[in-house]
Structures are given as structure tokens and as C-alpha cells.
Design a protein around this nucleic acid. Structure first.
Lengths: 126, 126
DNA sequence: GTTGTATTGAACCGTACGGTTAAATAGCAA
DNA sequence: TTGCTATTTAACCGTACGGTTCAATACAAC
């Protein structure tokens, strides 16, 4: 089986990218919002959107591939269940980023403190 | 001026989608991580990556378009500064989502409580 | 001026994306 | 069996994406 075609510069596409990419579509985010409320079949899920069913099916495949949605089978239906755990890495990346960002201001404070200290020294010396 | 070509089904592409899309690339995330530490020129920023400068420039344009990066000019240099505020809507969406998700379990609890109550009633009746 | 450095623009390539329609599959119901 | 419903697959279309190379621009320095 040939797996999905992966362009050379995209080899080993990380989970984080897949997740963010899955979230980067308003339809898919709306679907996730629906599924956060309750499990739904594909048709049910598709109802609020005026796109074709195959389009919905594709979106679901993207979400599924990102691990954000799992599906079982019940008769003809393929009920979709959300897996919010899969959101975690994305949340954590943003969290880590916030940390870096805050650290920067800490350094800025240090720098300013240093400047003030020097200023004080110079003042004394003067 | 013809603005960027927007396909009909993508009209009015929301800020949230643009932000998540900008985050959906490992190179861009790495760039943001660098810029979280300190402002950097394009060349400086490009150094760790073995892609061409125009590629870096394009990534920067994506980040800039998402409001995640601002640039000024200093001589030939176009120093990049991060704007972490622009990350907020994404973080907030994830937060709102988590709320929905938790609410679901609250409802499940309610449902189970209701079931147990009924069960108790039936038990009494029997 | 000319030269050198930093950055962007233009044109191109191959794959991905989001959508469509039409046909195929899977399972229930008569 | 035949038919109905739910969903996916296949084939296609146009634009976006991430990359390239080569040329252009912007500014500094000589």
C-alpha cells in the first residue's frame, strides 16, 4: 500500500502541523464544535452546512487523520465521536510559546534593571 | 488593485483560519520560536533553515499576514518582531472548545444521575 | 558613480486543498 | 430479490502552498 503521497519537502509531516492544519478551516472547526456537544452521524453533521456530502466526508477524513475524530459503525451510519485529547499538543505548543514570550520580558526587565544599576553607579561616581 | 485571489468558497477567510494555517508549518513555528527570544533580521532568521531566502521571505509574509509578525526597516535590514497578541484568538478558540467539551461531561453526569434516580424509583415501586 | 549586502519579486514546478458531480459500496427493510 | 438510506470513491476543476532559480530593488560603503 502506497500511503498518502508526501512531497519531499514535507516528509515526516509532524502531528502538530496536521492538527493545526485541521483547525485551519471554519467548516471543520464548526464540525468539531458540533461534535463537542454530542456524537453525530455524517448526515446529521452535514446538515447545517450547504456543501455536498462528499465534501463533508473529506473534512471528516482530515479531522480523523489528525486524530481529532474517531468513528465507529452502527448499521449504515458511521457515528463520529470527538477526541479532545488530540487537541493537547496544539494547546501545549501555544503554552510553551507563551512561556518563551514571557521569558523575553523577564530578560528585558533584567536588562532594564542592569541599565538602571549602571546609571545609579555613574550617578554616584559623578 | 486586485487584492489576493480568493476562491468563491473561501471568501471572507476568517482571521482564525489564517492564524491556524500560519501555525500549521514547522518552519514557521520554528521561526516564531526564534522571534519569541529576540527580534531578528530576515537573514539571521533564515540561517538555521536550509531553504532559500525567498522561501523564508514567503513564510514571513504568511506570518505577517496573520498578524503574528511585524516588521520595520533599519538600513537594508527588515527586522522582524513577533506580536504574540495575535495568537490570542486561536488560544481562545481552543479554550472555548474545552468548555464545550467539559459541558458535555456535565450533561453525561446529569444523564447518569437521572438514570440512577429512575432506577431508584423503579426499585421502590417493585 | 560602483560595488556589496539584504531582501523581495517573478516565473515556474509538483502536490495539496476544498469543492463539485456521478457512480459505487454497505447495510436495513419490503 | 428489490429498493431505500447513508456514506465513500473516483474523476475532475481551479486555486493555494512550499519550494526552487534568477532577476530586481533598496540601502550602505567605498
Amino acid at each position: 500500500m502506497r500511503g498518502i503521497a508526501v512531497p519531499p519537502h514535507r516528509q515526516g509531516v509532524d502531528h502538530l502541523s496536521v492538527t493545526f492544519a485541521a483547525l485551519a478551516d471554519p467548516t471543520r472547526r464548526a464540525m468539531l464544535a458540533q461534535l463537542a456537544l454530542r456524537d453525530m452521524s455524517v448526515g446529521e453533521l452535514a446538515e447545517p452546512f450547504d456543501i455536498s456530502l462528499p465534501a463533508v466526508s473529506k473534512h471528516l477524513k482530515v479531522l480523523e487523520h489528525a486524530g481529532l475524530v474517531r468513528r465507529s459503525r452502527k448499521a449504515q451510519y458511521r457515528p463520529c465521536r470527538i477526541d479532545a485529547e488530540a487537541m493537547k499538543p496544539a494547546v501545549e505548543w501555544l503554552g510553551q510559546f507563551a512561556l518563551l514570550w514571557e521569558a523575553r520580558f523577564d530578560r528585558l526587565e533584567d536588562y532594564l534593571a542592569e541599565l538602571t544599576a549602571k546609571e545609579r553607579k555613574r550617578g554616584r561616581r559623578k
